[in-house]
Simulated assay, not measured.
Amino acid sequence: MDDDTHIDADHVDILQTFIESHGFLSWLDLTVEELERGRIVMSVPYDEKLVNPGSPVGSIHGGIAATLVDTASGFALRSTFDDPTTGSLATTDLNVTYLRPATNDLRVEAEVLRTGGSMGYTDTLVSSVAPDGEEKDVAVGRTSYRLFHDSE
């Protein structure tokens, strides 16, 4: 890395290639929008396949927001590794608070709060464009992970 926050474009390409080869993440059509050390922004386009059954407003299932919180948090933490393509991590706690229905494309931003030798913590924000055209927060999340920097 050139400085404290820069992530090489190759890492973004590697991450996007991983997503596209991953059955569930590719099914969601997940895209990396921004990536820097300790922070990531990702998006998922609105799709009928993600909607709650019988929802009169076409709201996206809350499990999709929870998936975004978990996935973006893991990638944000991975970006703090000396080599983000090595090592692994495991979710130890995932908390999601839903604020309002999501009825449009989803955007998630995850930021690392703290990372150490064996544990990492993140805050996340999931947003969507509301029917009034304004982007609004639809969920917030906080996670903790067990970190394995060298695939221990």
Rank of each mutant, 00 (worst) to 15 (best):
T115C: 12
T85A: 12
T97S: 15
G74T: 07
E109R: 04
D83K: 00
V129S: 09
I19Y: 10
E36S: 10
S59M: 11
A65D: 07
L68A: 09
D13H: 13
G23S: 14
L89E: 14
S55I: 04
P84R: 03
P45T: 15
L113T: 15
V32F: 00
A76E: 04
L30V: 05
T17E: 15
I60V: 05
V126H: 01
A130E: 08
P101D: 02
P56M: 10
P53R: 04
E36L: 06
L35W: 09
G116N: 07
H22W: 07
G23E: 14
W27G: 04
R78W: 11
G74P: 04
L106K: 02
V112G: 01
V129L: 11
E34F: 13
G87N: 01
D70V: 04
T80A: 11
D93R: 14
Y121S: 09
V126K: 01
T31V: 15
G120N: 10
V12Q: 02
D93Y: 13
Y46K: 05
T92L: 14
N104A: 12
R114P: 09
Y121P: 01
T80I: 07
L89S: 15
F81R: 07
E33W: 09
V69K: 08
S73F: 02
L35S: 07
S26N: 14
T71L: 03
T67R: 03
V96T: 11
A65H: 10
F75M: 10
T71D: 06
A72R: 08
V126S: 00
I14G: 14
T31G: 10
D10P: 05
L15Q: 00
I7R: 11
F24A: 11
L99V: 15
E109V: 01
P131D: 03
V41I: 11
V126W: 02
D93K: 13
E48H: 02
L77D: 08
T91L: 02
A72W: 06
Y46W: 05
M42K: 07
A90V: 13
F75L: 11
G63S: 05
V32C: 12
A130V: 07
I7C: 09
A65Q: 11
D82S: 15
L30C: 08
D13I: 12
